[in-house]
Write a protein that binds this DNA or RNA. Structure first.
Length: 955
RNA sequence: GCGGGGGUGGCCGAGCGGUCAAAGGCGUCGGACUUAAGAUCCGAUGGGCGUAGGCCCUGCGCGGGUUCAACUCCCGCCCCCCGCACCA
């Protein structure tokens, strides 16, 4: 069967399912329900195999549960909140070739690409493409309930506003300030999407500015990450070649780099620039250390960067490699010393040792400078390494010396926070936000860090809220357990307040109900939206239901979700009937909470945890019941990446392999773990051939065979039922790789062996039933071919998608029969092995000689004793009849070393013989020689026979 | 750095105190079938030895340790993936 044929079969069933509306689920209190969701994807591009992998967990579970008799709801919406789409649309408007090229590779015409200047075009196009891709993958989604986010979808927008009003009422949304990377020219926050690529991922960092003072009170601010070393300052470094500004800062006179002054302006300080001053003018002047009161000189150094912090730094040569080497440099630099007349001052400078570190001298900076071979302050790479090493060592393990007074004896780690607090309180320091390196935005503007004031936070630090979140975990299942749970538990503890709003000028979303300058940020608007699915088919078709979207208010949602208020009155206000309002309420009550949500491991630390918090706050008791997290999907063992070309979208996969082969290969990629899964294209290639072949195989063998019921049929039924039982468990656990291993590979193995073993004469009833069960247990993974076989081969009228998943018949699982068959297989293997060793390729005959009667009982006991740990040969020999002890002494002795030597006694001699006789034809076919099964034989080797380990003669 | 997850044969992967030279898949090799190729079926697949179904060595990132016994537990180290906040 060709690929095209497969794809047309798939299309046929997708259409039939759609026409029969079998995936459209409505509340039905007479049936148990399952509600599954997958996070709505962000629609700035096509989905890929990684998305599909997580989604398939949801999809397979939905199909499995449907076949288990549940009323299953699987909806899917789309996410458009945030910056990327807005940024992309803007770049299209600006004619950015990179973005135009991206759209060209999707195959859009030049004319159409222009339309992508409008964010709405992105949302519409890519949500449709997503929908189409999932549809063609055969996903059992109720598309009536689909929607996209942001204020471009008014009913959803209303829902999010309701949610935020609720959170605010409960005190979980609070106002605060927050540092952001900010463009001072355009006056907007600069996120990653607004920056040149090399600046992505860099965020604001808080530093301490120590206020050294000149005799006239002028502040010389020095920025530092290590304020604790202020006790060891020997001098101040300033860059003599730079221009600084003299400014009024909060009523004081400061000398600071211009860029530093700009920062302070944006960080809630009152800054007026008065005049300028060259760095060199300050060289040689003295300033007072505000913490120790000590007078130190200002010295010149070239490494000081005016674009970082205040453009002035303090010098702690004992503990900072940069300072150590700069001091060395200047001591040798006669010219400079002379120029500024500072030779005498420099001469007197001695490093001050502050922190004791094991393995280092009193001046760790010197040690590190020597270790990394730093020659001058221009050896930046080596200096960075040296600094990094010293900082870590001192921070975690160093002990503060006596000079620290009350802080002495502690580690930096322990006292740093307190120290900063103290410095701020005494006016010795302030804190300031900077970027570690200057950031340039797309327009080429240099960005600084601004503290924005109308910033709203979700108060995840709130202990009450945390406690509510923790509480819900008790009744939440995580897969993989406990890995995923641990990640979430940890996040709950450490999560602090989350800035949940964005400037409306750079984003897209739902406006904060009480501040329309802000959009609710993308992770913060997608926490409880699964509830919206339960009523989405009404609200997204508002007109049809007579609902006036404009009139939707908090009272409306209060009724639907909480049952509060008068439905009659609310219905009237929103323009619809009480009936509609009440059925929405019923939908929510019936479907909620979500039973399964599958997601990527990266979301555990944010999105999943947020969702847990928000459910605890808004839908107490109705939190999501089960989360699964999975790793990334590698493609043929390599990381997927667009740029390397090792990348396959869902649509491409469908075109290449169709739905079922792709689904199969995805399922086979991995189980539910946080490790990365691996999509193997050779599997998908193979399955494209294998699945149609499967259908032909089933066709060939369906309703064929004998009505005689043999031991081997019992064996087959046992195997099949065991697989069904195990695969059922794996479906519930969503270990898709195990599912495929059992339902496909293991089942094939059993079927093939059964046919070989029965000389291609299966039991008609048993085999046909097994074939039906087989197709059913594969149906959630490969639903199209299953449906095709169900109808075309089995001639059924119903949809297999709605058939009952087979129940394993425990009675039929028969350990003894399985062991007996393993025994037969072992005999065949042994005969072959002996033929090989005896170099007999075509034996005239094979004689299988059973053990003497007495051995069955005796060796049964020996085996049992060995299993119980008995290793004493004498004790073991006691169960051997005295007259036989001599002949078995050797085997018993060797069994002590290796208990495997004694085979398990599965039954009586009678039964052993019966098994062999029954399998005689098969054995002969396998070994290619007539085989005699005898109870006694006059040959020296005959006495080697053990129960279920017959002696074998190849002649 | 912190937190979470990992490192098993040619590859993908199971195993998570003994029954492990290690399931299953892929690949490779040999055989059957075929005019041939493909598909299919059967067998082999760490190394060595064996005219009797067996035995020996090496082996689960590296180095130590616990234990009668370790891929599995503990300690140290190296490497890889994810998250660390305004990014969806």
């Amino acid at each position: 069967m060709s690929k095209e044929k497969m794809q047309s079969i798939e299309e046929k069933w997708q259409k039939r399912w759609e026409e029969a509306r079998i995936f459209e689920a409505d509340a039905d209190p007479s049936r148990p329900k399952i509600f599954v969701t997958f996070p709505y994807p962000y629609v700035n591009g096509d989905g890929h195999l990684g998305h599909l992998y997580s989604q398939l967990h949801t999809e397979i579970y939905a199909r499995y549960k449907r076949m288990k008799g549940f009323n299953v709801l699987f909806p899917q919406g789309f996410h458009a909140t945030g910056q990327p789409i807005v940024a992309a649309a803007r770049r299209i408007r600006e004619g950015d070739p990179k973005y135009i090229k991206i759209l060209k590779t999707y195959g859009f015409s030049d004319e159409e690409i222009k339309e992508f200047g409008d964010p709405r075009k992105w949302i519409k196009t890519f949500s449709e493409r997503w929908k189409n891709a999932l549809h063609r993958m055969g996903f059992s989604i109720d598309w009536r309930r689909s929607f996209h986010t942001t204020e471009l979808n008014p009913p959803y927008d209303k829902f999010v506003r309701w949610q935020y009003n609720k959170l605010r009422e409960k005190g979980f949304v609070v106002k605060g300030t927050h540092p952001v990377v900010w463009c001072p020219i355009e006056k907007i926050p600069i996120g990653d999407h607004d920056r040149k690529d090399e600046y992505a991922g860099i965020g604001p960092e808080e530093i301490v500015v120590i206020k050294f003072k000149m005799a006239d009170g002028t502040v010389i601010p020095t920025g530092t990450y290590r304020p604790e070393t202020v006790y060891g300052v020997t001098n101040i470094w300033i860059n003599p070649d730079n221009e600084y500004v003299i400014a009024e800062v909060d009523g004081e006179r400061w000398i600071i780099s211009e860029w530093g002054a700009e920062h302070l302006k944006e960080q809630q300080h009152d800054v007026k620039i008065v005049s300028k001053i060259k760095g060199e003018e300050l060289v040689g002047k003295g300033v007072k250390n505000p913490v120790t009161g000590k007078e130190v000189p200002i010295l010149p150094a070239s490494f000081v960067d005016p674009d970082v912090a205040t453009g002035i730094v303090m010098s702690v040569p004992a503990h900072a490699p940069y300072d150590w080497i700069a001091l060395e440099d200047i001591k040798k630099d006669k010219e400079t010393l002379e120029k500024y007349g500072i030779a005498e001052i420099v001469e007197k400078i001695e490093p001050i040792s502050l922190i004791e570190v094991e393995g280092y001298s009193e001046f760790p900076a010197r040690d590190a400078v020597e270790k990394y071979g730093v020659k001058s302050q221009k050896d930046v790479d080596a200096l960075e390494k040296a600094t990094d090493e010293i900082y870590k060592k001192e921070f975690y393990t160093g002990k503060l010396k006596e000079i620290y007074g009350e802080f002495a004896g502690r580690t930096v780690q322990e006292v740093k926070e307190d120290m900063i607090k103290r410095f701020k309180e005494t006016g010795a320091a302030i804190t300031m936000w900077i970027t570690p390196v200057p950031i340039i935005d797309r327009a080429g503007h240099k960005c600084l860090v601004k503290i924005v004031e109308n910033q709203w936070f979700l108060k995840y630090s709130d202990e009450k809220w945390k406690e509510m979140a923790r509480e819900t975990l008790k009744t939440t299942k995580f897969d993989p357990e406990p890995d995923a749970r641990k990640a979430v538990e940890h996040t709950i503890e450490w999560l602090h307040d989350w800035a949940c709003t964005r400037d409306v000028r750079s984003s897209l979303g739902t406006k904060l109900p009480w501040d329309d300058s802000q959009y609710i940020e993308s992770l913060s608007d997608s926490t409880i939206y699964m509830a919206y699915y339960t009523i989405a088919h009404y609200l997204q078709n508002a007109e049809k239901c007579g609902i006036n979207v404009d009139a939707l208010d908090d009272a409306f949602f209060d009724y639907v979700f909480y049952g509060k208020g008068d439905p009659e009155e609310i219905a009237k206000r929103v323009g619809t009937t009480r009936d509609v309002i009440e059925s929405m309420r019923r939908e929510f009550e019936y479907w909620y909470p979500v039973d399964l949500r599958s997601t990527g491991k990266d979301l555990l630390q944010n999105h999943v945890t947020f969702s847990i918090f928000h459910h605890a706050a808004i839908f107490p008791g109705k939190h999501i019941r089960r989360w699964t997290a999975n790793g990334w999907v590698l493609l043929n063992g390599q990381k997927m990446s667009k740029s390397s070309g090792n990348f396959i979208t869902i649509i491409q996969a469908q075109e290449r392999w169709g739905a079922d082969a792709t689904r199969f290969a995805e399922a086979y990629s991995g189980n539910v773990t946080l490790e990365d899964a691996n999509f193997d294209t050779t599997i998908a290639d193979a399955m494209l051939e294998e699945l149609p072949r499967w259908m032909e195989f089933v066709r060939k063998w369906y309703n064929v065979g004998t009505s005689e019921y043999r031991d081997i049929d019992r064996w087959f039924e046992s195997k099949v039922n065991r697989i069904i039982k195990e695969v059922d468990r794996e479906y519930e656990a969503l270990n898709t790789r195990n599912i495929v291993n059992l339902a496909w590979f293991e089942f094939w193995r059993v079927v093939k062996y059964y046919l070989r073993r029965t000389m291609n004469v299966p039991n008609k009833r048993v085999f046909s039933k097994a074939l039906e069960d087989w197709v059913k247990i594969m149906a959630p993974v490969t639903p199209h071919i299953a449906e095709e076989i169900w109808h075309e081969v089995f001639g059924k009228e119903s949809f297999i998608s709605l058939e009952r998943f087979p129940e394993a018949d425990e009675e039929k699982i028969d350990e003894r029969t399985e062991k007996t068959e393993e025994y037969v297989q072992r005999v065949v293997e042994d005969i072959r092995e002996i033929m090989k060793l005896a170099r007999v390729e075509k034996p005239k005959r094979v004689v299988v000689i059973l053990a003497d009667e007495w051995k069955y009982d005796a060796f049964g006991k020996v085996r049992e004793m060995l299993e119980n740990g008995e290793r004493n040969v004498g004790k073991l020999m006691e169960v051997i009849p005295p007259e036989h002890r001599k002949e078995v002494a050797k085997i018993v002795t060797s069994a002590v070393k290796n208990p495997k030597r004694i085979p398990e006694v599965i039954g009586t001699k009678e039964e052993e013989k019966r098994a062999l006789v029954e399998a005689k034809t098969f054995i002969e076919a396998e070994v290619g020689a007539t085989t005699e099964i005898v109870e006694h034989y006059d040959h020296p080797k005959a006495k080697n026979a053990l129960p279920f380990k017959p002696a074998i003669l190849v002649e």
